[in-house]
Design a binder for these strands. Structure first.
Lengths: 157, 157
DNA sequence: CCCATCTAGATGCAATTGCATCGAGTATGC
DNA sequence: GCATACTCGATGCAATTGCATCTAGATGGG
């Protein structure tokens, strides 16, 4: 039996079938749910999902607001994406930009009353799709397992 | 204690914390791996991941080729997305369009030698990221579980 | 055969994303 | 205090995506 040196020195870069199965299933699942969520939001005349995530984080930051770079970290968005998302949401009056005292380069983003209202209207639409997709399908225990595995993969390098 | 009728008649549309945890973990994981894959492909001077998926399906279809609508079903892409993806890949010479005898509206898509070569070069780059993300992180058994849960969620409605 | 209807695929236009780069402000070292 | 490096955020431009609509060919009655 011949053994290639590369197989000993370095691990094969080729993933197992099981890995590929898991990966494709994960991508399909998240894409499908994402499509359903976006579709439901649009059908209800509401903004896209990215606005929900941003509004939620901004609302959580409360009265003092949040810096764009901090928002970027939470949303895992590229810097320019964050910048433009903030612009669009602001143009719609759901958030406002506040001068930042201790750093002249940046500013703070705070949610407006209208922003809170819109986020609240989005939640049941969003949540309904999630509940349908997940809770009719898997037990709480299975969902915990799923979450744990996904978190590990997300932080793996 | 007051109970709202809606809580009895229809299930609450609000998902459990566990559901939300699983969902956000799943989205983060797939987005992170996707970013890594796209980054690795770009760093290697190779086309984006969407091309890989398309090339793989087209290659699998073999000599007779595959109709765009069939490709669309497999890739879960919108119709216009498929149409344009085919255009771009064709412009690069990795696939070719063949007249379709039994349906004058459409055509068949077939991979070229160059297309096969490019797909083969993409695989180790793609696969390496998958192997790192999944196999260093979870056992085969866990990956099976992950795949099973994700498949169920993908097909749930 | 002819019309109505349906399916396959393309495309104009607007919105979004990706990439590179820029401008302004801050922090550091001297 | 000042030059240098760094961080924050914006933006021009090209590529991609989403949406609506369109054309050509197929299909199914009458």
């Amino acid at each position: 039996m011949q053994v290639h040196l590369s197989a000993i020195v370095a691990p094969m870069p080729t993933p197992s079938d099981t890995t590929v199965e898991a990966w494709t299933a994960m991508v399909s699942a998240s894409r499908r749910v994402l499509e359903r969520v976006e579709g439901a939001l649009k059908a209800a005349g509401l903004p896209p999902l990215s606005w929900y995530d941003a509004l939620l984080e901004i609302e959580r930051a409360g009265k003092p607001g949040i810096r764009p770079f901090a928002l970027r970290e939470r949303l895992l968005l590229p810097q320019y994406g964050t910048s433009r998302l903030i612009d669009r949401i602001e143009r719609d009056g759901l958030i406002e930009k506040l001068a930042c005292d201790d750093d002249g380069r940046g500013f703070l983003v705070r949610i407006t009353a209208e922003g809170r209202r819109v986020r609240r209207r989005m939640w049941p639409v969003y949540g309904k799709v999630l509940a349908e997709g997940f809770e009719n399908t898997a037990s709480a225990e299975q969902l915990e397992t799923l979450a744990r595995l996904c978190r590990r993969i997300a932080s793996a390098g």
